[in-house]
Design a protein around this nucleic acid. Structure first.
Lengths: 344, 344
DNA sequence: TCCGAAAAAGAAAGCGTTTTCATGGCGTGC
DNA sequence: GCACGCCATGAAAACGCTTTCTTTTTCGGA
């Protein structure tokens, strides 16, 4: 294999050596100018900085990582990068990461079946911390692979691994608010919960809280008031269509597991001539931007996606800086936003 | 500063040394098992692989990068990670990157003002290639910083830098189709184009093509048939509200610069009692998922976001592998999808 | 049975940093 | 005016891996 020209990394391939030569100092001094400027004379530092500018020198991150035993890179693995939900999460994470001087290595889990691939393995040698959001089934697989030495924070899952931080949302809070809001004008027997997958952590919590609220009203809950499917518009549509066909939807209300489901329900209702909110009141979950775009505007429990992303990164960085820190579980508030789709 | 325990990188800190010792071979052999397996006996390779598994060894990516003079990391910088548009792009990029064994370092440009920061500089020493999508004004700033030696591909911009690949969409194709579709039933004088920022590359092309189509109909274009603002729901709303107030919108049609604008227009129209598509026919641009969720469903020119993301990564990887490759400009097709919002 | 070539394995030289340790120059306190 | 200590700098080791370059082993053919 042909040997590359001596200096041929990206960025022109100028190395610390070149800078040192140009500034007539040792490489140690150059390094110090960059990392501990107070250890070097103003005059020398000036010369070095000039050389750096002149040569367009950028430190080689690999060499730094090797020498320092860590880089400034965080990995974030999501079930899929898809739609407003994840993009908002990512946005929050990106902002915080940038603020803290870290980079984000993003990867979605959708392409293989949840088991870390060669690619992931490479990443493990590269990242200083890992943010993980996964659907339940895969969690087990990852647990085997995960390394106790790699700072990890898990999103939206009931993980109780020692040394693994987690960020969750206070599902009870928003759900309770939403339930109260719906029950205020709609009889408990006409209230429905249409969630995502039954095994999903959030869906489970939301359903449970909703159930409690119904019971608190002194209502004997019927099982068909709860439905579980997937986090998709289509599932919402199907549920509503079925429901309309079988029993009709009059003076009813529904809390959906996320905005997409809510939208599907709204759509199917409208298509079938069921008035929203007149006949059917709908509340979504997450409060993604789309909630304000559709007509009628969708009421929704707001989940602070941006904050979640930021919190994840913050926790990770804290742990990277101090591996002794005990595991934290951060819980972020949720809150009902009432719009037309549920207003009576 | 306290010296860390000898082997204390993430992933348990097992190094190639440990594996070598365990398998009773030299580190060279371990490396070969991993990178050029045919150079080593099946028996030895087996022993080494056992050791690797036993010790949970993961190669240190920094050391590899340093030794190989490159990693497997691509940087991608977007104006902002926000909404369906970018998330879809990212999704395409992620899939392709994974397929090719690369990682994606994602960063949004929104937080500082377009000039590369310390963070970015670090990234420059880390990434092997850069995908860049920026609004025009910032482009200049970056150009100064960009390095000829760093493979770069630019999205959706009319860059003509030597050695810089680009990926663009065929705006003319879809715009033409959309224009024809609208003009079929609506008089040219009642057709409008409501775009994003005037200086935006795509908006400019789309407007131009739309204009051509009107002229081809023998119509003397009035300037108020073209409006420029920003890529937001709100701008769409404002335009429609103004228009309705000033002239009314009857038997009219509009091509929007993206789906968000289209949605804003649709909303304002509906709020003002203007029927869509009865009085106003609307076609969006991009065909993000939201187009199928709103009612009436939004007609839109489909932009292959997923493919764009994938193409960007593919181009980048090709160039990383072969820096002599001449600069390519890839143009992806667009295509009108007719839904209810424009159906007569 | 032995020779020579090919295959397999090892030794060691980098890759570009950071950081420890060593060194020389200088100012300060007596 | 002298010793001591501090400060600025340099020399060199270490980080973990890949890749030459060597050395050792194996094996086929005479």
């Amino acid at each position: 294999m042909r040997r590359l020209k001596a200096n041929s990394m990206s960025k022109g391939g100028t190395s610390i050596q070149d800078v040192a030569r140009e500034a007539k100092v040792s490489i140690a001094t150059v390094s110090r100018v960059l990392n501990q400027p107070d250890l070097v004379t103003a005059e020398t530092a000036g010369r070095v900085r000039d050389a750096i500018k002149l040569l367009g020198y950028v430190p080689n991150a690999y060499a730094q990582g090797l020498s320092r035993r860590h880089g400034k890179v965080l990995g974030i693995v999501l079930p899929d990068i898809y739609g407003e939900f994840y993009s908002e999460l990512l946005r929050g994470a990106d902002g915080e990461a940038r603020r803290l001087g870290f980079h984000l290595l993003v990867s979605s889990d959708a392409h293989d079946h949840g088991s870390p691939t060669r690619t992931e393995n490479l990443a493990f040698g590269l990242i200083d911390g890992l943010a993980l959001m996964m659907t339940e089934p895969n969690m087990e697989l990852w647990r085997e692979t995960l390394d106790a030495a790699l700072p990890t924070v898990v999103l939206d899952a009931d993980i109780n691994e020692p040394g693994v931080d987690s960020v969750v949302v206070d599902n009870a809070m928003g759900t309770h608010e939403a339930a109260e809001h719906l029950l205020e004008k709609t009889p408990a027997s006409n209230c429905f919960f249409v969630g995502g997958p039954r095994e999903n952590f959030d869906t489970a919590q939301r359903a449970e809280e909703f159930r409690k609220a119904l019971i608190a009203k002194g209502h004997a809950v019927k099982e068909d008031q709860f439905a579980f499917g997937e986090y998709s518009v289509d599932w919402g549509r199907r549920w509503a269509a079925d429901r309309i066909k079988s029993g009709g939807l009059k003076n009813a209300a529904v809390l959906a597991g996320n905005d997409e489901i809510a939208l599907g329900i709204m759509q199917a209702a409208q298509d079938a001539g069921v008035g929203v909110p007149k006949d059917l009141r709908i509340v979504g979950f997450d409060d993604t931007r789309i909630a304000t775009i559709v007509r009628p505007a969708l009421s929704a429990v707001r989940v602070p996606l941006l904050d979640i992303g930021a919190a994840v990164v913050r926790l990770l960085v804290e742990r990277v800086g101090n591996s002794e820190k005990p595991a934290t579980r951060e819980k972020l508030p949720t809150k009902l936003i009432v719009r037309e789709s549920s207003r009576v």
